[in-house]
Simulated assay, not measured.
Amino acid sequence: MAHRKWIVWIRRAILLVLLGALVYHSTIVIQIIRFRTINPRMTALMRQRAREARARGQVPKRLQVWLPYERFSPHLVRAVLAGEDPRFFVHHGFDWDQIREAIQENLEEGEIVRGASTITQQLAKNLFLSTSRNPVRKLHEAVITVELEMLLGKRRILELYLNVIEWGDGIYGAEAAARHYFGRSAAQLTPEQAAFLAAIIPNPRETYNPARHPARVERRRRIIQRRMRHVLIPAPFRAASAKAAESAFAP
């Protein structure tokens, strides 16, 4: 009898967990639909960093300037794709070939030169989750990645990504990063500057903090800049100044 009661309670618990997950992801879907036309005012990562700053007794910093996709330097788009997700335009949120190749390349280089998470996966984490690496968070990330790919186009995913990811302490988005590091707009970045910004994306506060590890950042910048010439951007996703970027890599 007691055994049957335990089974009933376990079933109820599983049902409640599934129901909670359904409600949670329903709210996520609603937000993603809004993000088709409305830019997010805050992200989960921004809120996490604000809490961390307050816990240290500091005032949270947030530098962010929104820039439309067509205004970004095509050098930056190419550099970010080269460093983070070369097959972004052909996969559906997960790139299993990239995971295998990233592991192999990182072993060959002796350091992390390319991440295995796609841009869509990274955006899911930034918008809705935390930096925790626990399995539950990764499961939510996978589901949200599918939702983003289904509800947003590649162009909008990339636009959101370039505007919300962390590029330093309190620095969010490429425009704020370009102004902070180079004193210019993200629309005016050179190939070298674009590769630098792409180089620090994996961990701009610690591992690839340019103030603490300039040599490490420079090594990764050179690797990314070499790869940039091999990144192809489909015509519908090229910025207005893409011809200038193409000529920069012409033989």
Rank of each mutant, 00 (worst) to 15 (best):
5 K>D: 03
6 W>P: 02
11 R>K: 13
11 R>G: 12
18 L>N: 11
21 A>D: 03
21 A>C: 11
22 L>F: 04
22 L>Q: 05
23 V>W: 12
24 Y>H: 13
25 H>G: 11
27 T>Q: 15
28 I>A: 02
29 V>Y: 15
32 I>Q: 03
34 R>Q: 08
39 N>H: 14
39 N>W: 01
39 N>V: 07
40 P>E: 00
41 R>H: 07
50 A>Y: 00
51 R>D: 11
51 R>S: 06
52 E>M: 01
52 E>Y: 00
57 G>K: 00
65 V>S: 02
66 W>K: 06
66 W>M: 04
70 E>K: 14
71 R>K: 14
72 F>A: 06
75 H>R: 02
76 L>N: 01
77 V>A: 02
80 V>Q: 02
80 V>E: 00
81 L>F: 03
83 G>A: 14
87 R>Q: 10
88 F>C: 09
88 F>H: 07
88 F>D: 00
91 H>E: 01
101 E>H: 08
102 A>M: 05
103 I>R: 12
111 E>W: 14
115 G>M: 07
118 T>N: 06
119 I>D: 04
119 I>S: 08
120 T>I: 10
121 Q>R: 09
123 L>W: 12
124 A>M: 10
125 K>Q: 13
126 N>A: 13
128 F>Q: 06
133 R>F: 10
133 R>G: 10
136 V>H: 02
137 R>T: 09
139 L>S: 09
143 V>I: 15
144 I>A: 05
144 I>Q: 09
145 T>W: 11
149 E>R: 12
150 M>A: 15
153 G>N: 14
153 G>S: 11
157 I>A: 00
157 I>C: 04
158 L>W: 05
159 E>I: 10
161 Y>T: 04
163 N>T: 06
168 G>W: 04
169 D>V: 09
170 G>C: 12
171 I>A: 08
177 A>S: 07
178 A>M: 04
179 R>E: 13
181 Y>H: 06
187 A>H: 03
189 L>N: 01
189 L>P: 06
193 Q>V: 01
193 Q>I: 01
197 L>H: 04
197 L>F: 04
198 A>H: 01
200 I>D: 01
202 P>S: 02
204 P>W: 01
209 N>Y: 05
210 P>G: 05
210 P>S: 00
216 R>C: 04
219 R>Y: 08
219 R>F: 08
219 R>K: 15
220 R>Y: 13
221 R>N: 01
226 R>A: 10
227 R>H: 12
230 H>Q: 12
231 V>Q: 06
232 L>E: 14
233 I>P: 03
234 P>F: 00
234 P>G: 02
237 F>S: 10
238 R>N: 01
238 R>S: 03
239 A>S: 14
242 A>Y: 15
243 K>T: 11
245 A>E: 09
245 A>V: 07
246 E>V: 11
247 S>F: 13
